[in-house]
């Protein structure tokens, strides 16, 4: 018995080598797809999204505190200056230093409010990371794909995150919800306002200021509604 086994050993060895090379080959084929996924980026998004959804749905906080908590989380993790610059298109060269400072302050406020309004529809839902892939070949940008699943059985909402490497961590440049990149949408509006006011940058600042004022009221009433509905 043992002798037969020994006699067949070379064959078994060959078979093993063939099997091993097949496995290696298969790994090499699937390898790139897996290697393209970025675990650090995925866990960054998972943490950020879960915290954002948790904060917006936290009922123990007053609406004002809730927005403050969301802002803290948001501003620390978003690349606001880059979003602001992107939203201006070629007009990025036109504001004076004072206008730039004012613009950055307003745009941060504005974006926080836009995101808080749109994300507050998704509180108390299940968030899942699906995949990630690099953008460009510098290795500095990553697109993370995720979805929000509904307990009601409604079709899940796809959400994509455009990340930029920032030291050991990441910053979010843009988020795509149901096919819409938010920064792209802002850019379209911002450029349109400046152009339709003959390049007057102050017109944009005024428009943003007006919207922030209105939205502050709206967000407060929305969060209060959620509170009364929840409590």
């Amino acid at each position: 018995m043992i002798r037969i086994f020994l006699r067949q050993l070379p064959f078994i060895k060959n078979a093993a080598i063939i099997a091993l090379s097949l496995v290696v080959g298969a790994l090499a084929l699937t390898g790139p797809a897996n290697a393209q996924r970025n675990e650090a980026a995925e866990s960054f998004v998972n943490k950020l999204a879960s915290e954002a959804i948790e904060i917006l749905g936290r009922e123990s906080l007053s609406p004002v505190d809730r927005e403050a908590a969301f802002r803290m989380l948001f501003v620390g993790n978003m690349d606001v200056p880059r979003i602001g610059a992107f939203a201006l298109g070629q007009y990025v060269r036109t504001p004076t230093s004072e206008q730039k400072v004012e613009y950055l302050r307003l745009v941060e406020d504005f974006i926080v409010k836009v995101y808080a309004t749109r994300l507050s529809d998704y509180t108390n839902q299940v968030f899942n990371i699906l995949s990630s892939q690099p953008k460009g070949n510098r290795g500095t940008e990553i697109i993370v794909t995720s979805q929000i699943e509904f307990k009601t059985g409604r079709a899940p909402v796809p959400v994509e995150w455009w990340l930029l490497r920032d030291g050991d961590s990441f910053k979010v440049f843009d988020v795509k919800v149901v096919g819409i990149w938010m920064a792209q949408e802002q850019r379209s509006s911002f450029i349109s306002v400046i152009r339709n006011n003959n390049g007057d940058f102050n017109a944009l600042l005024t428009h943003i200021e007006e919207r922030i004022g209105e939205k502050a009221d709206e967000i407060n009433s929305k969060l209060t509604d959620a509170e009364t509905a929840g409590g």
Partner: peptide
């Protein structure tokens, strides 16, 4: 409408 600066462009 309420979260855009220019509803038409948005």
């Amino acid at each position: 409408e309420r979260t855009s600066i220019d509803y038409y462009a948005a």
